[in-house]
Every structure is written in structure tokens, then in C-alpha cells.
């Protein structure tokens, strides 16, 4: 039985004396979180379909250190970062794409101070590029045509790195009706998981942040909430469950939307 899709590792590439065009940094959520694995799979399939020469680190990949750094543990962050840089530089990696804005921010902005210099892209930017180059031609129509969709800005993509248009360009290519939430782009409301909040219970308050954000998303009347971040995906999906809307409203990552359009989803 032949495998339709391939995921070569850097170790395999190096053994074959090959150098991939881009490293797909999967991230911890993309590797372990069952829901986000679907995003990893969708993006991998897209890379396969377009014929991108890519590789992953596989078991050699470890946490970038982002949550440790945001929670104050600079030692642990730097331990992770320096080890990762050794691996990345060992393979002479030049270009990285990741579906996690936290990994994206850390690799792009914080690794250079520790000697790791790479061209880092978020998968929304990568997909935007593929669409612009005509390497992905949207089928449009079908399940998506004219349907309302809203996009939730991830803080680490938006405010942290001023990437607002790439994810929107991806959505626009899908022939869907993009309805913005009241707080969007630079004023977008956080899902509640950034700054290592993903890994602890929220502090005492009157409401959970993801519920506040989900309510805002539901107000747009969109049946699809698009996200570009594993933590946002979890938080928004939990918010939808909290509102008992999981039958009507789905939370999908940009890569999943493209994969569906291209008939690549399982």
C-alpha cells in the first residue's frame, strides 16, 4: 500500500543528503493535542499536495519555551531555546513555518538574541503565499460558498507581530462572507490562553475570557469561527461548548478550511 502523504523528518533528509526548502515546526499542541493534530494533518496534506519540499523534526522537536518564559521561568526558556537552536543549526535550517503563533513569535523574535536566526513564517502567511502564487487554487463553492465566517485574531500573531491580513486573505480566497467581530485586528480580544494562561485555571473573576470572546463571535451570526492558533482553537471551542452551540457553530483552523476546500480532509 502506498502512502499518499509523506512526512519526512530532518534526520531522514540529512541522511539522504537533502536539504528541504522549509521546516514545518509542528509545536507541542500540534503534536499532542488531539484536536490540533487535525490541523497538523491538514497542513501536512496541503504541503504534500502543493509539492513543497518540507520536513519536520519529529521526536527531535521540543517546546520552544514560550509558556515557561511568559510564566517567568527564564532559565527554563533559555534551556529549551538553546537546545532547540543547537538542533536547528545542526541541520542548517534557514526557513521555518509553524501553525502556532506562540512558536512563531518565539522562534522569530526571541531566538535571535540566543544566536538562532531563521526566516520564520506563520502558516497563514505561508498559505497566503501559496494562494498568491497560484499554487493553491481555491475550488470555492461547495460547502463554504457565501457562508458567514468570522476570524478571531490571535494576540501573538496580531498585536505581537502585526500579522492581520494574511489570515484574512486566506479566508477571502474561500469565497466566504467574512464578518468581523466588534473587537478585531489590533483591538482583538484575547481568547484568554496567552501568557501561559493555557496551563492554569483563570484567576477569580466574573466571567471566563473565552466565554466573553465566544459571545462576541456568535453575535456575528457566523457559523464558522476561523482561528490560527492552537490555544485560541481550544478556548473558542470550549466557549462554544459552554454556550451549547457545538452543533451549529464550528471552530476551524485556516489550514483545515483550505484542506476542506481542496478535498484533503479525512
Amino acid at each position: 500500500m502506498s502512502n499518499t502523504y509523506q512526512v519526512p523528518t530532518m534526520a531522514q533528509k540529512a541522511a539522504a543528503g537533502e536539504m528541504p526548502e522549509v521546516l514545518f515546526w509542528v509545536g507541542c499542541a500540534g503534536s499532542f493535542d488531539e484536536r490540533y493534530q487535525a490541523v497538523t494533518l491538514a497542513f501536512t496534506k496541503i504541503l504534500n499536495k502543493v509539492g513543497i519540499n518540507f520536513a519536520v523534526l519529529g521526536e527531535e522537536e521540543t517546546c520552544t519555551g514560550d509558556p515557561a518564559r511568559r510564566a517567568g521561568n527564564e532559565f527554563l526558556f533559555q534551556m529549551q531555546a538553546i537546545s532547540n537552536i543547537q538542533v536547528l543549526d545542526g541541520y542548517q535550517i534557514k526557513k521555518i513555518v509553524t501553525a502556532c503563533p506562540h512558536c512563531f513569535n518565539t522562534l522569530k523574535n526571541e531566538y535571535p538574541a540566543l544566536g538562532g536566526n531563521y526566516e520564520v513564517m506563520h502558516h497563514s502567511q505561508f498559505l497566503q503565499g501559496l494562494i498568491q502564487e497560484g499554487k493553491i487554487v481555491m475550488k470555492g463553492g461547495g460547502t463554504f460558498k457565501g457562508k458567514r465566517i468570522t476570524f478571531h485574531d490571535s494576540c501573538y500573531l496580531g498585536r505581537a507581530n502585526d500579522v492581520y491580513e494574511a489570515p484574512r486573505d486566506v479566508i477571502k480566497a474561500l469565497d466566504m462572507e467574512l464578518v468581523e467581530m466588534k473587537r478585531c485586528r489590533s483591538k482583538g480580544l484575547c481568547c484568554g490562553a496567552g501568557g501561559a494562561q493555557m496551563f492554569k485555571e483563570p484567576e477569580k473573576g466574573s466571567k471566563d475570557i473565552n466565554v466573553e470572546r465566544t459571545e462576541e463571535a456568535l453575535q456575528t451570526g457566523a457559523k464558522t469561527i476561523a482561528v490560527g492558533c492552537p490555544f485560541c482553537l481550544t478556548m473558542m471551542a470550549d466557549g462554544i461548548k459552554n454556550k451549547d452551540k457545538e452543533k451549529d457553530v464550528q471552530v476551524l483552523d485556516l489550514a483545515e478550511l483550505i484542506a476542506k476546500d481542496q478535498g484533503l480532509s479525512g
Binding site: 523528518t9 507541542c28 499532542f32 517546546c63
Partner: peptide
């Protein structure tokens, strides 16, 4: 090497789902 307690050796297990689906 991940914020969740998964064995590091399971990190690449997702790849086995790629052609299963």
C-alpha cells in the same frame, strides 16, 4: 519537553494518522 505530560517519544505519533484517515 512539552508543557503537557506526554512521553517525548509520542511526539511524532500524529504522523501515523496521516494516511489512516
Amino acid at each position: 519537553f512539552a508543557p503537557w505530560k506526554f512521553p517525548p517519544t509520542d511526539r511524532f505519533n500524529w504522523a501515523s494518522k496521516l494516511n489512516q484517515e
